[in-house]
Simulated scan of single mutants.
Amino acid sequence: MTALQINSEISSFAFSLFKEFPTNTNLIFSPASIYLVLAMTSIGSNTETLQEFKNVLGFENPKQFAQQVRDATQILLDQSQGVQTKIANKIYYGFTNLDEEYQKIMQESFSSSIEQVDFQKDYELSRVKINKWVESVTNDRVKDLIQPDSLSPSTLMVLVNAIYFNGKFDKQFPKYDTQKREFNVSDNSKVLVDLMLVENEYPFFENESYQYVQIPYKGKQFMMEIILPKEDYTLSEVEENLTLQNLLNLRQNANEIKIDLGLPKFKIEYQTSKILKGILNKLGLKKCFQADADFSSMSKNNSIFIDDIVQKSVIEVNEEGAEAAAATYAQIVFSSARISECKKPKVLCTRPFLYTISHKPSGQILFIGRMKNPIQNQ
C-alpha cells in the first residue's frame, strides 16, 4: 500500500462514516483525524483486535502501515502560499510500562510526542492539560475537546490527533457583493443569510439531480467542494446515492467554466459526543471497545481497552476563505450529466447542500459536512 492508497482509504472511510451520522442537523467532521487516531491505536493491538483494525482501516502489515501513514500525512503538510495546514498527534499515558517499540513507532511514523501523566491522582488536571494542547494546535478553534468527568482514575491513556486548516480562496468573494438572501431550510422554513456572490470560472459539473463545484484555495492544492441538490431533489435523496466513486467521477468530469456562484457565510461546530463509538461498531470495530481487547503491543502488563472515542470539529466560511479544525481523542482504560451550453450556470446555495475540504493531488477528504441551516452554529 502506498501513501496515495492510504489517502484513498481515508476518503472511503469518510463516506462510510458520513452515511451513519444523523441527517437532520448541520454537520462537520474530519475523517482524516478519526482515521489517524485509530491508526495510532491499531499499532498497539494484536490478534482479533488487530484484525478488525486491518479490516476497517484497510492495511495488512502494522509497521508498513505506520510508515505509509507518515508519508500520506507529509503530502498534506505541503504548504502553499495562502494556506496553512497542521496535523499533530500526542499520547498521554498514566502507567510505567508503555512498550518501547510502540513508542518508537509513534514518534518516528506519527511524529507523536509522548507524555506521562498521573490520571489516577489527578485526571482532571490531565484533562485541562490535554485540552490546552489541542487549543494551541488548532489556533484556539477547538476548545474543551474533553468534557468534565470524561476521564477518571481508571484512565490509562489518551491518544489525540488535531488537524487545522486555514485557506484563502484563490478567487475571493467580493465583500461588497454579499447580500441578504433567503435560505430554504425546508419547504416550510426559510431563514435570512449572508449570501456571498461571485462570477468566475470554476470546475463545474451538473446532472439531473445536483450541481457540483470546486472552489480552489490559494496554490490550488486544496479545494472546497460543493454538492447542491437541484430544486426537485432533496438533500437526503442525493446523500443516499452518493458514493466515493461518484465523487471521483465528479472530480474527473468537472470542466472549468464561468458560473454565477452564491455561497452562504457560516460558522458551525459539531461534537460527536457518544455516537462515534456506535458508528465505528457498525463499521466493524467492536473488539477494541470490549474488556477482552488485545492491546499487548502497547502494554503487556495491563488489561486495557478503548472506553470512548470523541471528535470536535469547527468550520468558518467567509468571503476570504475557510478555517476549519478538528481534534479526536481515544481514551483507553482498564478492563474492569452534461453542462448546459445555452446559458451561464447559476449555483446558488440557498438550500441545504454538502461540502468538503479536500486535498486535490491526493484526493483525500480532510473535512466533510452538511449545511442544513447557516444561521445555526451547530
Rank of each mutant, 00 (worst) to 15 (best):
I87A: 00
Q51N: 14
A254Y: 02
K230Q: 12
T96E: 11
D140S: 12
L145H: 09
Q51R: 13
E323G: 07
E269A: 08
K372G: 06
Y92L: 11
V347Y: 03
E182D: 11
F205T: 03
P361L: 07
K267D: 12
P203V: 00
K286V: 12
Q376L: 11
V310T: 15
E101R: 09
S111N: 15
D144W: 05
L151D: 07
Q81T: 08
E100G: 00
E341W: 00
L235P: 12
S313E: 00
D144Q: 15
N26Q: 02
R370W: 01
E115P: 02
D99I: 06
F205W: 11
A291D: 08
D78G: 06
Y212G: 03
S150D: 14
V193A: 02
S236Y: 01
L244E: 08
N188A: 05
D140Y: 12
Q364D: 02
F222H: 08
I114L: 13
H359P: 04
K344A: 10
F15C: 03
L280Q: 05
R70C: 08
I105F: 07
K265M: 07
V83P: 04
G262K: 06
E239A: 07
V160T: 15
F266K: 08
P148M: 10
E206L: 05
G321Y: 10
S136R: 15
S273A: 08
T350C: 10
L366Y: 03
L27Y: 00
V137T: 14
I226L: 11
L197T: 01
L263G: 02
K171Q: 12
K267G: 10
V310Q: 09
A3E: 07
K220T: 11
L235Q: 09
S109K: 04
Y270L: 06
I279C: 02
S30A: 10
A326Y: 12
Q211K: 15
L159P: 00
I365A: 09
N161D: 14
N301A: 13
V69A: 04
K129R: 15
L76H: 05
V83G: 03
G278V: 10
S152G: 15
R251A: 05
T23A: 07
L263H: 01
D292T: 10
G321V: 13
I130S: 13
Y123F: 15
E48M: 11
T25L: 09
E231S: 07
V69S: 03
Q378R: 14
S30W: 03
N281I: 02
I163D: 04
S16G: 05
Q84L: 08
V347R: 06
T96S: 13
Q103D: 00
D122F: 07
I279W: 09
I309T: 10
E225V: 07
E225T: 13
